[in-house]
Structures are given as structure tokens and as C-alpha cells.
């Protein structure tokens, strides 16, 4: 259980995190989603006691991280895949981390095996690819077998196999009743991994809800309908209060009516329908909708860039 209360971090004139409050519960994967520069990493570093909040507080299991007697056994964190001395081998890095908590060597070997680092464990961490660095960071986070995991952009730089591995790992850990707090700016990744979503933009929490609510809450349900009499059906459905797009000939996108109502309307009026598909708004759309006003770095459309 992570609790964050009015957490604020000000760097000079810039407010990176502006009074953020939320709770991350055990037994589920909580995604922390936001555009670059939204304050995700700063919030995580403050939870880990690495950055001092300007005001507000963050606790893990009711205590500030700094006050835990055996912090690595309470929280495991991957804050930065490069939080390693570049000239030290992965094995020695983990060994040194483990030594602070008397974690046995067997556990070091265990996490190396778990993260698939066996082949490179004796090599300098500085030569690692981003993906290998992520695996080493995850290995370090798992060392103390902690009840809470904080992972900042864990799939960054991983190959597809690694992405699936992280997804399964965090789902498995949450399934064991652990608290998993995972940040990403990739909405598609969150849609497949997280149960609950905290969306942050410009240092403020924009949304804090189960992922299903976020997807359905923004934008109403839409239904794709194919028929050989599009004009007729369009008229009929419009009469029932639906708003309708016609992206193709013989295809309608209907917003505001349930599929069953559409089908019933078509049946009553003897209009043949040969496709009726409910369209789920993607998390991506929901996210863009949520954060459009809170993106720190806007890009110009491609056409304007090339001018």
C-alpha cells in the first residue's frame, strides 16, 4: 500500500509535482500514466526518499520509506535502468546491494536467473543494452522479495519478448497480493497490464480510476454497422437520437445507441444488416482526450515541421 498525500516538488520556478494525492492498493497492478515531463519519475523518487518533497508526504505501508528498518525488503524499485556503476559487473552490483540487508548469495543468483541475466552477469553493466539494464534494475528490485514494487518505465527498451515477460511478471506479482506501481507513457502497454490507472499531467492527477472506467468513461459506446441500405438505416437511427458517421459506403458508425436497439430497429424496418460490431474506445483515445490540455511538450503536425 502506497499513500501519497499532497505531494509537491518545486524546482526553482518550475513545479514538477503539484499537490498529488493517491493511494496504490495491494493485489493489483496500478499504472501511472502520463506524458513526458508530467512528474511520474519525480513522484516515484519522492516515494523512495531520494528526492525531498517541497511539501506533502508519501508512505509505504504507513511509514515513510526512510523510516523502514529493512527498506529493500519492503519496497523494490526500478527508478532508472542506469542506476548502476558502469564499470561494475551486474553480479557484483547485486551482491553489494544484497550485502546491505544480509540477503544471501543464493537470492542474488535466483534473481539473476529469474531475469535472464545469467549470460551477462559477470560483464560490466556499462556495456549493457537498455533492455539488459532494465532486467538488471528489475533483478535489483526483486532482491529483497518486497511486498511493494515501484517500477519506472520498466518496458522501456525491452524487446517484444521482454515486454511480455514484464507484463506476466507484474501480473504474477500482483496476483500474489503484492502492491505493484508501474509507470509508463505507453498507453497500449497499460491497457494490457494495469488494473487501475492513475493519469498524471503537468504534475497533477487527471484521473484515478479502474482502467475499464477510464476507457468507457470518455467517449460513448460506438457501434459499427454494415448494411446494403445505409441511407435508410441512417434516417431510422437518427430518428432515435443517434449521431452517425458514414466512413464508407454501406458502413455506419453509430454513437449513442445500444447494438440491440440498432438491430431491433433494422429488423422492424426490414433492413438487412450484415455487420454489427460494438467499438471499444481504445485507452489511447481516452488518454489523449484526458491529457490534451496537460501535455508539456506539444509537437507540431508533420506538415508544419517540414515548412
Amino acid at each position: 500500500m502506497i499513500e501519497v498525500n499532497g505531494l509537491t516538488k518545486v524546482y526553482g520556478a518550475k513545479t514538477a509535482v503539484a499537490g498529488v494525492s493517491f493511494a496504490v492498493r495491494a493485489g493489483q497492478v496500478t499504472g501511472f500514466l502520463g506524458p513526458n515531463g508530467a512528474g511520474k519519475s519525480t513522484t516515484m523518487r519522492m516515494i523512495m526518499g531520494l528526492d525531498r518533497p517541497t511539501s506533502g508526504s508519501a508512505t509505504v505501508n504507513g511509514l515513510p520509506y526512510v523510516q523502514h528498518k529493512a527498506p529493500l525488503r519492503v519496497v523494490g524499485a526500478l527508478l532508472d535502468a542506469k542506476a548502476v556503476h558502469t564499470s561494475r559487473s551486474a553480479y557484483n552490483h547485486l551482491l553489494a546491494m544484497a550485502a546491505t540487508h544480509s540477503i544471501p548469495k543464493t537470492r542474488v543468483h535466483e534473481v539473476i536467473e529469474m531475469t535472464g541475466l545469467d549470460a551477462v552477469a559477470r560483464k560490466k553493466a556499462g556495456g549493457f543494452s537498455l533492455g539488459m539494464g532494465q532486467r538488471l534494475g528489475i533483478a535489483a528490485a526483486l532482491l529483497g522479495d518486497p511486498q511493494t514494487l515501484i517500477l519506472d518505465e520498466p518496458v522501456n527498451g525491452l524487446d517484444p519478448e521482454g515486454v511480455v515477460w514484464v507484463r506476466n511478471l507484474v501480473r504474477y506479482l500482483a496476483g500474489q497480493g503484492r502492491t505493484v506501481f508501474l509507470s509508463s507513457h505507453l498507453m497500449s502497454e497499460m491497457a494490457q497490464t494495469a488494473d487501475h490507472l492513475i493519469v498524471i499531467g503537468r504534475g497533477r492527477v487527471i484521473a484515478d480510476a479502474p482502467i475499464r472506467d477510464i476507457i468507457t468513461g470518455n467517449g460513448q459506446a460506438r457501434v459499427r454497422v454494415r448494411t446494403d441500405q445505409p441511407e435508410r438505416l441512417q434516417q431510422l437511427l437518427a430518428g432515435r437520437g443517434a449521431s452517425i458517421d458514414v466512413p464508407e459506403r454501406e458502413m455506419l458508425e453509430v454513437t449513442g445507441l445500444e447494438p440491440k436497439t440498432i438491430a431491433a430497429t433494422a429488423l422492424e424496418n426490414q433492413v438487412m444488416v450484415y455487420e454489427l460490431t460494438p467499438l471499444v474506445a481504445s485507452l489511447e483515445e481516452a488518454y489523449m482526450e484526458l491529457t490534451k490540455d496537460d501535455v508539456e511538450y506539444h509537437s507540431l503536425p508533420a506538415a508544419e515541421v517540414s515548412k
Binding site: N61, L63, Q67, H68, K69, A70, P71, R73, V74, H85, S87, R88, S89, N92, L95, A96, M97, A99, T100, H101, S102, I103, G144, Q147
Partner: peptide
């Protein structure tokens, strides 16, 4: 909950620093 196992005493941290020192 934080007493799940041994934490960082000075001797353990010293041991960790020795490992870091000799592994460079």
C-alpha cells in the same frame, strides 16, 4: 512489516561498500 528481515546495519553497509570498492 518492516521487520521482515535484517536491514542495513553499519556492519552490513560497510560490507557492501567493501564489495563495491574491490569490484572496480
Amino acid at each position: 512489516r518492516s521487520l521482515a528481515g535484517p536491514g542495513p546495519t553499519f556492519i552490513r553497509v560497510l560490507n557492501s561498500e567493501v564489495i563495491k570498492f574491490r569490484s572496480l
